[in-house]
Design a protein around this nucleic acid. Sequence first.
DNA 1: ACCTGTCAAGTCTGG
DNA 2: CCAGACTTGACAGGT
Length: 319
Amino acid sequence: MIVRFGFVAMSLELYNASPSKTISYTNYAKLTDDRSRLFRLKKLTEENLNNTLRILINAHANGIEVYRITSKLVPLSTHKDVIDWDYTGELSQQFQKIKQYLEETGIRISAHPDHFTVLTSQREEVIEASIRDLIYHDRILSAMGKGSEGKLVLHIGGVYKDKEKAIDIFKSNFSALPQNIKERIILENDDKSYTASETLKLCQELHIPMVFDVHHHLCNPDGLTVEELLGPVFNTWENQSLPPKIHYSTPKSQSSIRSHADYVDSEAFYQFLLKAKKLDKNFDVMLEAKNKDVALLKLMDDLKHYKDIKFIRGAVIEF
DNA sequence: ACCTGTCAAGTCTGG
DNA sequence: CCAGACTTGACAGGT
């Protein structure tokens, strides 16, 4: 099986390469006129896109083929009281460059709207804001040349003391989404509320792929083993053009088990690989270590001690 | 140049 | 019913 590795949002190898430069709403509102506001938003977005390309180029140089773009590419993009500007049109050159580079290198990208996007909420304004956020992410992925293979990872959301009801609300909100957005959404088990088997059940019902987060499963177990879950999780990807995706990280410590450690424990990861090997299916691993690409490269280095792992490229292995 | 409190957004818990 | 935690990189204001 082939396993590819990726990292999230920013590179710690590169100097001054944040793709998430921003401005606070307070300071945005302090600017004197719309022209300077727009100028500022455009400037920041342009820098973020340039840095995204730098990160992609560096990832490619390291043999990394999987990457999660930041949700903060366009500052204040879905804020209600901020100018609605055509960022994909005005910065089409920058988007075009990224699109071309992704085509050239075959790097897989995805996005993970943060926890303010909640499809279980009963509050109308929360759903509206969530939809705005999904549309924003869809616009970005489309401008980067991605069709339905450019995925948006979501958690199921809140529980509000009644999981069944919350899941029903999720279903009805999900079914009302535009088709192109539905096709992008994939669901991930979280570390507190919705376990892997609960998430899997919903994914099976809605025919959407599931991302299995190994760390979250450790924090929020459901009695099922990784081996038991992995087969059915991978099956949710059956009709997809890209292989299943796994999230992996190591707990920071015994006492703060839910936080991400700086690096990934390679022995624990190897044990996970052994379990996945039984299915013998290709998949991608998104590492969520604090040290980002540096942690990814360190893991690759550590894995070289295991003689049964064959390295194809920097962060692509055969096992 | 460096340090620290604050930030658009939601939910949950505890007081 | 409200404040604070959660979590996290980056801004912004102060030193």
